[in-house]
Simulated scan of single mutants.
Amino acid sequence: MVCASLTLTIPKRTWIGTVSRNHPSAEFRVRSAQSADAVGVGFVELLAEKPTEIIESIRSFDPVHTVEVFHQEPNRALLQIEADKPILLDVLDKAGVPVEMPFEIQNGQVEWKLTTTRNRLSTLGSALDESEVGYVVEHIHAKPEFDRILTNKQQRLIEAALRRGYYDSPRQCTQEDLAASLDMAKSTCSEILHRAEERIVKSFERGTESDRTAPRQTA
């Protein structure tokens, strides 16, 4: 698995590309979105000085079917927007990659964070290359898969340590507390923990070295 962060540039010809550029200080926070039968539906939080003006602007575009206002304040509105499938959803559907929600659109640009496989990430890159969306990969790094690099005992101990706050700062439990919670001798706990941490660090370093050779994508 890999974690990646991308900055995308939405084409000006799209309604969201036009509206967000016409109101560069406005933030469109997409809380959820889905598409079916070439139509996309998104639940969006709009943060702007004059949300009413922006909402009316959105409604004026032919691809936009409906805009429902669930809640509105002087500088904020919650909207459900139904429109012809947006270009961003089309790219995600083609790649089959889930993106972390919410993500923000501002002044024609989008920040995406995602966790997926290298093959899926490559498919996403191809889908973006075939679209009109420009993009830059800001960073990419490997995400350790505990079930692949650790033994069952090591995984059980690491997960318990995370739950109990052993790796928090400041630390919420001692190694002795951790061992007692698992009915384990402190010396045994220390040895298993050390070996697990060694595997995780080495796995991360292998992933980092691999990622250093990955080219930055631009369009």
Rank of each mutant, 00 (worst) to 15 (best):
T123E: 15
N107P: 06
L89P: 01
V67G: 00
P74E: 15
R171S: 08
E49R: 08
K143M: 15
I58A: 02
S60N: 10
V91G: 05
N75H: 09
A180V: 07
A48V: 05
F103W: 10
A180L: 09
A95M: 02
P144D: 13
M101E: 10
L79R: 00
D62S: 09
V91R: 02
E145V: 14
P86W: 01
L88H: 01
Q175A: 13
G134I: 13
G108T: 01
S131R: 07
D93I: 03
K94I: 04
E49C: 01
P170G: 05
L88A: 06
W112P: 02
R156V: 09
T115Y: 00
F61W: 04
V137W: 06
V67N: 01
Y135C: 11
V136D: 13
S122W: 06
L178Q: 09
T66G: 00
E56L: 02
H139C: 09
T116Y: 10
K50W: 04
L162A: 05
Y166K: 03
T115C: 09
A127F: 05
E130V: 07
L46D: 09
C173Q: 06
R156N: 12
E73S: 11
T66N: 08
D183S: 15
F61D: 06
S181Y: 13
L114E: 07
E68D: 04
I158E: 12
T151F: 03
N107H: 07
N152A: 13
P63W: 02
L162Y: 12
R163S: 15
L78R: 02
E49N: 09
A142H: 15
W112Y: 10
V97N: 09
Y167A: 04
F103C: 05
Y135N: 11
R59D: 05
P98N: 13
L114Y: 03
L121T: 14
A161F: 11
F70E: 12
V136Q: 14
R163M: 11
V91I: 13
D90P: 00
D183P: 00
V99G: 05
I158V: 15
S181G: 15
E176I: 10
L157T: 12
Q175S: 12
L47A: 09
L182M: 15
D147V: 03
E82Y: 00
L88N: 02
A95V: 06
T174G: 04
D177P: 02
L47P: 00
E176Q: 14
T52C: 01
